[in-house]
Amino acid sequence: MEIIKIERKVLAKNDAIASEIRGKFEENGVFAINMVSSPGSGKTSLVEKIIEYFSGRVNISVIEGDVQTDLDAQRVSAYNVPVVQIITNGGCHLEANLVNDSLKNLDLVQTDLLIIENVGNLVCPAGYDLGEDMKVVVISVTEGDDKPLKYPKMFINSKVLVINKIDLLPYVNCNIEQLKQNALKINPALQVFEVSCTSGEGVGKFCDFLESSI
């Protein structure tokens, strides 16, 4: 048998497109976050809270990724910010080429902060670079404190952890200290924020952090 050496990353093509996207962001002064979580952790609610917080001060654009429906884009467009919906039709994550295509429908010059809300899935989106400055993983206390140990790759690849729904802590079986400890064991460099998108608690601190990064 003849052997042909390849040594090529399977996602090399995705990574190349992600680099191209990163170049566009840099050129236009866009700070981009890739928001990832399980379905129902409150990503869209957090997007809404971020938009409310920065209203009139920071130009925000949003890319919504979902398996089906444009319900999230409808929610976000109510806030009068540019939003593009990507429907993956069964795909479990966003890929760089989908994001690159959707950028044609956004004005990057007029964007300071781009929020890419990924498909709700704590596994697959971890491996795909979308050209973002950072991945922000959202977890809600209703999911339990063991999730960082069960889905480590997402926590390794994220820079920020937002723990949402802290208003529900009295009612659910989740030890938030244990949750943080588990997350920081997986990735000690994670910046952790505790928020409630219902009461608004903690949202300001997280947004101030975002603003300091822009």
Binding site: E2, I4, I6, E7, K9, L11, G127
Partner: peptide, 8 residues
């Protein structure tokens, strides 16, 4: 996650 080599 890498294609290492092919055998022909």
């Amino acid at each position: 996650l890498r294609v290492k080599e092919l055998k022909i």
